[in-house]
């Protein structure tokens, strides 16, 4: 099994082609194993009583942010499937869908970044020293986001930015309705871009698998609901968050 693949360039020199797609199966396997282990561990752990969804609705995600999340989710799924299915032998006309989804994702990310920086509280996503007490101290509750959620967000951020960055470069290397491809990159640079694009894709596949898994876990499902409906219950808030660190308003 190879980690990366090589080819010969136009003059017969060995040149990087990109990531080896053998790694796709490794990533899928590792993700499945991680999820399985987690399921087993959680089955044997004694879970605390589930907080009630009844009572006051506290706002967790504004509609606009939920919209962003789902637009991003859909575009990432479209990108992953259009990018990966041809690799595993499913033939369809994927490229245009892929770059359109890529542009939507890029626009969504730009929007989210601007909104998060100027209209939201970026500190809510900041990882501070307090956050690291959470896993070891049952009494320490997080603010709006747990350490795990912040970790997931930041890992996702890094990979999405990488995949977008490399994707935009590759976008310039194909013919589009607006321009014809350029020859700006030599073949070895192109190989590096493909490697980073492929590697970040593989990372995203693993991360998305975990993200979806956690979103479906019974004890976390209220977060998923909040990403749909916007609110969590007062009970859920109290059970999972420290009101001193996050005190949301009542949901409309």
């Amino acid at each position: 099994m190879d980690i990366v693949e090589f080819r010969e360039d136009v003059w017969g020199r060995e040149v990087l082609l990109g990531v080896s797609w053998d790694l796709l199966w490794v990533v899928l396997t590792l993700s499945a194993v991680a999820i399985m282990v987690h399921i087993v561990v959680m089955t044997f752990l004694k879970s605390p009583p589930r907080p009630s969804a009844a009572g006051l609705h506290m706002e967790r995600h504004a509609a606009v942010d939920r919209g962003f999340h789902w637009i991003m989710a859909v575009s990432v799924f479209v990108l992953l499937f259009t990018g990966v299915l041809p690799v595993v032998g499913v033939d369809f006309s994927w490229l245009t869908i892929h770059w359109v989804a890529g542009l939507i994702l890029t626009a969504a990310v730009v929007f989210h970044t601007l909104r998060a920086l100027f209209w939201q509280k970026p500190r809510e996503m900041w990882v501070g020293a307090d956050d690291f007490r959470e896993p070891f101290d049952a009494g320490t509750k997080p603010g709006k986001y747990s350490l795990a959620q912040k970790g997931m967000h930041h890992a996702m951020t890094a990979l999405v930015l990488l995949v977008i960055g490399t994707g935009l470069v590759l976008f310039a290397m194909i013919d589009t309705p607006w321009w014809n491809r350029s020859n700006a990159l030599d073949e070895s640079t192109l190989g590096w871009i493909f490697l980073l694009h492929g590697a970040s894709t593989l990372g995203l596949i693993g991360l998305v698998a975990l993200h979806v898994y956690f979103a479906l876990r019974p004890e976390k499902r209220f977060y998923t609901r909040s990403m749909i409906s916007g609110w969590i219950s007062e009970d859920e808030l109290r059970a999972n968050h420290d009101p001193a660190r996050w005190s949301p308003e009542r949901s409309a």
Binding site: L17, D175, N180, R181, N183
Partner: peptide
């Protein structure tokens, strides 16, 4: 041929 580039569809 499984590579990353088209030599025919390029500016020159």
């Amino acid at each position: 041929a499984g590579g990353n580039i088209c030599y025919a569809d390029s500016p020159e």
